[in-house]
Each structure stands twice: as C-alpha cells, then as structure tokens.
Design a binder for these strands. Sequence first.
DNA 1: TTGTAGGCGTTATCAT
DNA 2: ATGATAACGCCTACAA
Lengths: 334, 334
Amino acid sequence: MATIYEVSKLAGVSLATVSRVMNKNAKVSEKTRVKVEEAMKELNYRPNSIAQSLASSRSNSIGVLVSELHGPFFGQMMAGIESELRAAGKHVIITTGHSEEEKEKDGIEFLFSRSCDAIIIHVEAVSDEYLIELSKGKTPIYLMIRYVDKLVDNCISLDNEMGGYLATKALIDLGHKDIAYIAGPLFKTDASTRLTGHKRALAEQNIPFYENLLYIGDFKETGGTEGLKHFINKKVSFSAIVCANDEMASGSMKYAREHGFRLPEDLSIMGFDNVNFANYLYPKLTTIDNPVYSMGRMSAKLVLQNVYKVEDLHIQHVFSPTLLSRKSVTKFQP
Amino acid sequence: MATIYEVSKLAGVSLATVSRVMNKNAKVSEKTRVKVEEAMKELNYRPNSIAQSLASSRSNSIGVLVSELHGPFFGQMMAGIESELRAAGKHVIITTGHSEEEKEKDGIEFLFSRSCDAIIIHVEAVSDEYLIELSKGKTPIYLMIRYVDKLVDNCISLDNEMGGYLATKALIDLGHKDIAYIAGPLFKTDASTRLTGHKRALAEQNIPFYENLLYIGDFKETGGTEGLKHFINKKVSFSAIVCANDEMASGSMKYAREHGFRLPEDLSIMGFDNVNFANYLYPKLTTIDNPVYSMGRMSAKLVLQNVYKVEDLHIQHVFSPTLLSRKSVTKFQP
DNA sequence: TTGTAGGCGTTATCAT
DNA sequence: ATGATAACGCCTACAA
C-alpha cells in the first residue's frame, strides 16, 4: 500500500504538501494540487486511517451501545445513526448492553478503550448519576430515548406524555368512554409518562380515571394477556384498551381472541411504538408511532455538530409521536 | 491519559518490558511483572488501541456489511457476530449495502479504508466474480448466507434444499397431497434451491409436481397475496401452500382470511425463515427455522480462527434448518 | 505557498 | 530477561 511518502516523491513535493491536499485545510497552489492528485491516483493511494487517528488524535469512529441487537427498536435506530454518520465518512462501532447494569458499563468501557470520538448510548439499567459522571469525562456521550435533566443538550427523547395523550384521545374521539389502560413498569419513566398522558386525555373530557381500569404490566406480551385477564375477572366494563407498548397490545389481542372477542368490534386495542410486527398482527395494530429512525439520525447529527463541528444542522432534542390508524381500533359500538 | 512511557518510568523498566507484560508474549520475570502491573494500576493506564494498531498493523476491528439494518434478519445476525467478537476483545464496525450493487461495493471500500482485519459481508447484488476478485486482496472476506463455490472455506450458508424438503415433507406427513408452492425469484439461489427441496419431497412420495401449483413470487408480502390469488383463479385444488419465506406466507395468510378461508382448517400455510414477526401472525406461523444467530456466531468464529489464530474452534460451514411447528399448519381434512 | 522536523503511543528487532 | 531504538503513516507547528 502506497504511503504519503511515496506520493510526495512521485509528485516532487514534501510530505506536508500531500497532507494538505488530502485535508484541504491549507492553501495549496492549483498546480501542485493537481500534481499531487495525479500521483495519488497513479499509486492508488489510500490514506491509512489509523495513522491519521494517531497523529490527529481523532478516530472518526463513533461508538454505539444498544440494549439488544435483535430488539424491535434497534434496527431502526441503528439504521438512522449509520446512514447519517456514514454519509459523513465516520464509522460506527457497535456493542450491546443487554439492559444489565454491569454489561452496560462494560460496553461503555469497551467503547472508550476503542478511542471513539463520541458515544451514543441507549441504556436502561444504568443510573442517571452514573451517566452524569460519565459525561464529565473526555469522550462526549449522547443519550438515545432517555431524558436526563442535567444532560438535556445531550439527550434525544420522545414526548411520551403526548403519546399517551394521543392514544387515549383517539379512542375518546371515537366515542369510547370506558377505556382500560395497561401500563409498563412505572419505575420506568417512559411508562409513567405515557400513563400521565392517558390521564390528561381523560381529564380533558371530564372522564374520571378509575384504578379498576389500570393494570401495571411488564412491557411484554404476558403483560398484555395478564392485564386483559385481570380486567375481565374484575368484571369492569370497557370498550377499549390502550397498551403502553405493542408487545402488550399483541398479548391482549391474543387473549381477547381466545376468549371470543371479535376484534375490533367487541374491543378496540391501541398499541404504542409501532414496532415492525405491529403491521403483521391481526387485525393490524393501530398504534402510536415512535420515530426511532429519525431519532437515530438526529443523535448522529448531534455528534456531527458538537464533535466534528459540522454547521447548519437543525437539531431537535425531543420528538413528537403520532397516531397511526390501522385496524385494531374502531368506533364505540353501544 | 498515561502512556506506556510513564508506566515504564514509574516501574523503573524500559518501554519494551512494559509492552511485554501487556502482551504476555515474551518471558518477563515474576518480579518485574508485578512492578509493572502495579505501576499500570497506579497510573490507571489504558493501552491506546490506535497506537497499537499502527505499530502492529492490526486493528482488531472486523467490518460487517449487511443489506439493511432494520431487516428481519439483520438483528439476529449482528447479535451473533457481536457477542462472539466482543468476547474476544475485537470490535465490530458496521455498515449497510441496501442490496444495491454500487452501495454494496461502496460499503466494502469503506470498510477496507477503515483497515479492518477482516470483513464479514452479507450481500445480494454483487456478483460471485466480484467476490472472488475481492478475496484475492489483502483483507480476508467472509460470506454470510451465501455460497460461492470457489470460496467454500469463507462461506457460512444454509442448506436451503433441506429446508425446502422439510417444509413440504411436513405437509405430506400430515396427509396433504395437493401442495401449492410460492417460490422466490428463481435467479436467487436461495429461492431455487428451496424449490428443489420441495420437488424432492414430492418425488420421494411419488407425488407429481404440477406447474399449476407453482407461482414465482418476490419474497415480499405481495408475492404471497398474488400467489394465492393466482392459484384460486386457476381453479386448481390444493389443501396446503408452502411459501419460500415468511413475508410471502404472511401475505398469503392475509389474502386467505379476507377470502373466507378458515386458517388453518381450510388451508395450511407453511413459511420459511422464522423471522421475528412469524410468532405474531395469526395463526402463529409454522415455518422452517433459519438459524441466523448461530450462523452469525459461526462467521465470527471463522474470523477468530483464520485471522487471529484462535485455536480449537469447531467450524461448521453449512447449517441445517429445522421445522418449527406452530399453528398455521394442520393435518389434511378431506 | 511550501518544506523541515518533531511528535502520536505502540510493537518488534537487535543487542546485551 | 531486559534495554535501546527504529519503524508504523500521518499531522502540524514552525521556518523559509
């Protein structure tokens, strides 16, 4: 592989000049630039990115830590991050945290040791304090789908309250009044904020909130089945049910169908997230779209702006979810 | 950040010795080793991976190119690759090819320019010849889910013929005789090999193969709906249908349900691949499991063995699919 | 505008 | 077993 040195010899200039034409960061006369470029072409020169990194103390690599590589979110998120970064000539190093504190910390350590210029993390187990501490370090960190007050400028998050509101509001607009809600584990802020939105939609229309119509699930399919079973056993009446995520909605749908409900005539079911399988459920799941892909892109832009000083990027820190009407919700049938 | 130089001073030894204890590749006396290790601890020394790479011309990074980051396969595949490589202290650089020849080539170029020690690619658009040419280069390449004759030792692939056989055989064992088949585009070897397996299963039981019961789809949902529509219009009779992948199976299921078929009583539907949403379809899709996760791990092991000389790894180049019985297939009902 | 020379933090080859 | 010392390929003041 040709080096900058050989190029300089062939072009009859110095190392420095070759470096300059590569990096376009200093004035080089048209004539010499052409000479150098021709030499590079002739030798099929490719810069050695590692040597560049060592000399400039910049690796042009961004570390990304996600919970699971095969989760329903991950793909979209990574796709967003990668497309943006790749277009900028940066590369993405990826690793996983498996939602376990130790592994998440390990992953972050690993990324640091790889001398990433910045790290984008999607972590769940690790505490806010830990993240705040981390952010004081030399490598900038950016948080995906998580909001930490003291780190606002480094967060990309979703307006979960609004999502919860939209979900319930849509049902109310269709005439539903008795709306059950299956929440996620409330210690997760996503889950509690979505619930808050639900309550606001109710209150806005003077519909009282009944504890009887609330079940705390686990964000998994079982949470959906257990929740619906719970409501049925309690003998409360309800014509619609909103689930705090699509997995639980899927669970509810399965349980409902097994127990003779016609969907959506007998029961409207609303999801949240719009993960890939939502479109494969039967009936197709009406849900709240969580723009993970866009958020991924945005986190990359944030890095580009803050770390690589790219300008004129419009940065948006919090994203708004939208209602995605499909087939699992219909108007109230008395 | 402390450097090897500071460690050597603190420990009262030379650079070389410090390097030796780091790499455990040369004899160092117990005493000095301890001294050095203590110095490293005291300075909180972390090796600079970039400098290591430059000096050793080894980046410890493996490039991975996949078609789509959000496809149904990708997650599993990446999860397999990452877990294995990460455990070995290597890191994974990822990028996408979008199933377009130019982009795939770009992606490979990109990975090369990042000085990866090896690259694992999952490409569709690029030709065998191109890959063969590539493999003559300096950076070893490994092929996922693709079989190229001249590159056997660098391929991890699935026994698609066996999968096609298993799918149809399962149906035959349940008493079905009129089995329709929706294939993928036959220029893709996956598609044609799966079809070959189907035919073998038929022949084995002396069931004739009728062109009337074959439809060439596109590996997408539409292929499934179009295929079923085609068979119905042709007025051929069939009690089961095997689709060459799960997307098409999903399409067939939707069309069948919309047209009054009870599933699976009126029509058994078999998929192929076992992508994540297969379990969310209604009824749950009986399908052929494609062990993408294991294949991902194996490709990583291949790299570990060939590039990093790790020993005692059991390498398996071709994987066998298995039947996954769920709810979309039932026994023949006269 | 162009060239010179000193790093960047390791590895690896010789000696000793 | 240990120590000098020359690479590794490039960047970047500083000089010219």
